[in-house]
């Protein structure tokens, strides 16, 4: 159950990099499909926020990060967690309320954190992770660690006060932080057209003195290139960058969403822009992998998820004993 080691670098720079990017996008896709299936069969509790269709964002961003770089994530956080290298069994076990889950069954889908891979945690509060990432970057600067922090958040989070206060702090203190907005066009039922009076959300950076870039969030190559530039800036002490990755959530916001606020045609149009075939096309074009190798990568991801589900299902359930003692970390003598 050790953290997966991370491969860094351009997804088209070698067959290994291409394989890595593809494997991680497939892992996210298959993980989410498994979660949806477990919910459908009544085997999972609570709610779920699936990131199917958004796999390129976290994958491209994390290809530019080192293991010790930190992230904060969101309610729609499985992809961030996987892309940063989390253990699939422990993730699935958390969702199934098992002792070996990342939070011992106490946090569930919206609260997975993994110290080993620098994941400071998903968040149930929209915008909650943004100032936290800024704080992590502040610590990095104060301790000369050379690490960067990335905050993943949605378009909706950009209208929380937390975003604005955090962005300003990051800018005035020139912190090594990347504000990574996954603009999937909706915050629950609220479209960006209704919730913003600007077209390009990255323009918000301007008001804080932060460069804002907009990229095709379904293109893992474009995401990587923007991320790599932002990370270089951050490590050079030049301060934060705001990245807006344009993408789309295929599934409902959560389990109870009836999709009344958007059309089936719109959803279908975006399904045609699936980030996975888009990348496969580039990989084949560049002769980095053969089709049979690509098929094998897909199968590998599927097998890994099946194994994670089986291991997690077989694991011991979390027990209520000791909850009271778990609230505070013991004060060391």
């Amino acid at each position: 159950m050790v953290a997966q080691s991370l491969l860094m670098g351009h997804p088209l720079s070698s067959p290994d990099h291409a394989r890595h990017a593809l494997l991680y996008m497939y892992r996210i896709r298959k993980f989410e499909e498994a979660v949806e299936d477990l919910f459908g069969r009544g085997m999972m509790h609570g709610t779920m926020h699936l990131s199917i269709g958004q796999e390129a964002g976290p994958t491209g961003m994390c290809l530019a990060l080192r293991l010790e770089d930190q992230i904060t994530s969101t309610h729609r956080g499985h992809g961030h967690c996987i892309a940063k290298g989390a253990d699939l069994t422990r993730m699935m076990a958390e969702l199934l309320g098992k002792k070996i889950g990342y939070c011992g069954g106490r946090g569930g889908s919206m609260h997975i954190a993994d110290a080993e891979t620098g994941n400071l945690g998903a968040n149930g509060v929209v915008g909650g992770g943004i100032p936290i990432a800024v704080g992590a970057a502040l610590a990095s600067k104060m301790q000369h660690k050379g690490t960067v922090a990335v905050s993943f958040f949605g378009d909706g989070a950009m209208n929380e006060g937390a975003f604005h206060e955090a962005a300003n702090l990051a800018a005035i203190w020139k912190l090594p932080v990347i504000l990574f907005c996954e603009n999937n066009h909706y915050g629950m039922s609220s479209s960006t057209e209704k919730a913003f009076a600007i077209d390009r959300l990255a323009d918000r950076g301007l008001g804080y003195g932060i460069p804002g870039v907009t990229v095709d969030g379904n293109d893992v190559v474009a995401v990587y290139e923007a991320s790599e530039a932002a990370v270089a800036r951050a490590r050079n002490g030049e301060g934060p960058t705001l990245i807006e990755a344009i993408t789309y959530r295929w599934k409902g916001h959560s389990r109870s969403d009836k999709n009344l606020y958007r059309s089936k045609e719109e959803i279908d149009e975006w399904k045609d822009l699936d980030p996975i075939p888009k990348f496969i096309h580039r990989v084949l074009e560049a002769n980095l992998l053969r089709q049979d190798e690509i098929d094998a990568i897909q199968k590998q991801a599927t097998d890994q998820i099946i194994e994670a589900v089986n291991n997690a299902a077989a694991a011991e359930s979390a027990e209520p004993s000791g909850l009271l003692e778990a609230v505070f970390k013991a004060v060391s003598a």
Binding site: H45, G97, C103, G105, R106, S109, A318, L323, V327
Partner: peptide, 14 residues
């Protein structure tokens, strides 16, 4: 209990 509400159903009930 004087704890944050946990996720897993068996913990949440307790």
């Amino acid at each position: 209990m004087n704890i944050p509400i946990p996720y897993a159903p068996q913990l949440e009930k307790a």
